[in-house]
Computed example of a mutant assay.
Amino acid sequence: MHARITKGLAVFAAVAAALSISVASAGPAAAVDSVVVCRNTHFDDCIVAGGWVTDPLKNLGSGARFQDSISSIVNMSGSRMCFWEHNGFQGQYIRLDTGQQLADLGASGFNDRISSWKAC
């Protein structure tokens, strides 16, 4: 599932609330399947993506512009997620626990470096 989010934190909050309702009704398997990745800091220009992406150019289709251009992220899955700097879960990575968010990846040295992610 990919949903386009374009208007910052207020829109993000509304989408997150809607997804929480649909995830709860879909059962535990669906809860492990969503992260929010944003091209800008503070959750602007985002998409809701699946729980694992090996290569944004292939896995996100129109979201290919997210390759090495992610500046904020939210883990809405039911698992700890790892975000790697290279495709195919290679190189350095950062971990986010369930529900954790980073509004500015520059603070962690990971701005515009994420290329793949999955539960870890």
Rank of each mutant, 00 (worst) to 15 (best):
A30M: 06
D33Q: 10
G99K: 08
G78Q: 11
E85M: 14
I47W: 04
A31D: 02
A49R: 04
G88T: 08
S116D: 04
A13D: 15
W117T: 01
K118N: 10
S25K: 05
T54F: 03
S79N: 14
A10V: 15
N40C: 07
A18W: 05
M1Y: 08
V35N: 05
M76F: 13
E85V: 14
Y93G: 03
A119P: 02
A31I: 01
D97W: 05
I47Q: 02
G109Q: 03
R95K: 10
A29R: 14
D112H: 09
G8F: 10
S108F: 00
W84N: 01
T41I: 13
F83P: 02
L9C: 10
F12A: 12
V48P: 01
S69G: 10
G51T: 02
G109L: 01
C82L: 12
R39Y: 09
D112N: 15
S115E: 13
G99P: 02
N59S: 11
A3W: 12
S34E: 07
Q101I: 02
G88P: 07
V36K: 02
M76V: 05
M1D: 13
K118E: 08
M1H: 03
P56G: 04
F12Q: 11
C46I: 04
A18I: 07
S20I: 01
P56Y: 04
S25Q: 00
C120H: 04
A13W: 07
L105D: 04
F89M: 14
A107P: 00
K7E: 15
T6P: 01
V15H: 13
S77E: 08
L96G: 01
S79I: 07
I21E: 11
Q101H: 08
L19T: 08
D112K: 06
G91T: 05
G51A: 03
Q90C: 12
Q100A: 13
V36N: 04
F12H: 12
A14I: 09
S34T: 12
G27T: 06
